[in-house]
């Protein structure tokens, strides 16, 4: 464990807490893409299959449970909770994310570290996470104005993977045979997708103005 990875995990946890706060405090999920939440739930379920078979550390196990539990709770909330689901931007959240799932699964079958079921699913979860934010970014551009908590949620979600890239660079130089090229390339793509959001987020922070994404 290094400071980049720990900070990255805490940033990821913070993004989930901000999202839970928004949904709980405002009883609304306006501006949040249900499709991105479903993709993230799938990412965690596919990646953390080794939760009970491969114990790494208490921290690792606890965080996996928190990520799986929170992502499923958010999807449940947005689908079932009568107050919350009323505020869901159904007509804006129309990105066909099933294509993302199919494409990432095909890619995982072709490009993986070992052609074994757990490894293919792990690669699938890495590729899927890289593109899982697309429905959310599309929704933000369509919905124009972004409320503070939603903006912070997306910012933290993008920042955590950028910190993981620093973690991979650090591990590459400090561990003899460290190679995570699949996660690295996918992580770079994932972070690059946030580039324009980061730019407008920075502008809104610098000008102390409302976060506006050009539609």
């Amino acid at each position: 464990m290094n400071v980049f990875r720990l900070t990255g995990d805490m940033t990821h946890l913070a993004s989930i807490l901000v999202l839970l706060l928004k949904i709980y405090a405002t009883k609304s999920c306006s501006g949040i893409s249900l499709k991105t939440q479903e993709l993230y739930a799938l990412v965690f379920l596919a990646r953390y299959l080794n939760l009970f078979t491969d114990f790494i550390s208490v921290y690792n196990t606890v965080m996996k449970l928190v990520f799986i539990g929170s992502s499923l709770a958010i999807v449940w909330c947005m689908r079932m909770h009568k107050m919350v689901k009323r505020s869901y931007d159904q007509e804006l959240d129309t990105f066909r994310h099933y294509f993302l799932i199919a494409g990432c699964f095909l890619l995982a079958l072709l490009v993986n570290e070992k052609f074994m079921f757990p490894e293919v699913l792990w690669a699938f979860s890495i590729y899927l996470e890289a593109v899982s934010t697309i429905p959310q970014l599309v929704l933000l551009q369509r919905s124009g104005n972004v409320d503070n908590l939603t903006g912070q949620y997306v910012f933290l979600l993008g920042a955590y993977r950028a910190l993981y890239i620093l973690n991979w660079i650090y591990r590459y130089f400090t561990e003899p045979h460290f190679s995570r090229w699949i996660a690295c390339v996918a992580g770079l793509v994932q972070t690059a997708l946030y580039a324009d959001f980061f730019y407008y987020y920075f502008l809104s922070w610098k000008n102390n103005a409302k976060l506006q994404l050009p539609s």
Binding site: I56, W122, N167, F178, S179
Partner: peptide
């Protein structure tokens, strides 16, 4: 699996 191959990251 060898330490480095295990997926020890979240």
């Amino acid at each position: 699996a060898e330490e480095s191959e295990r997926h020890d990251e979240l």
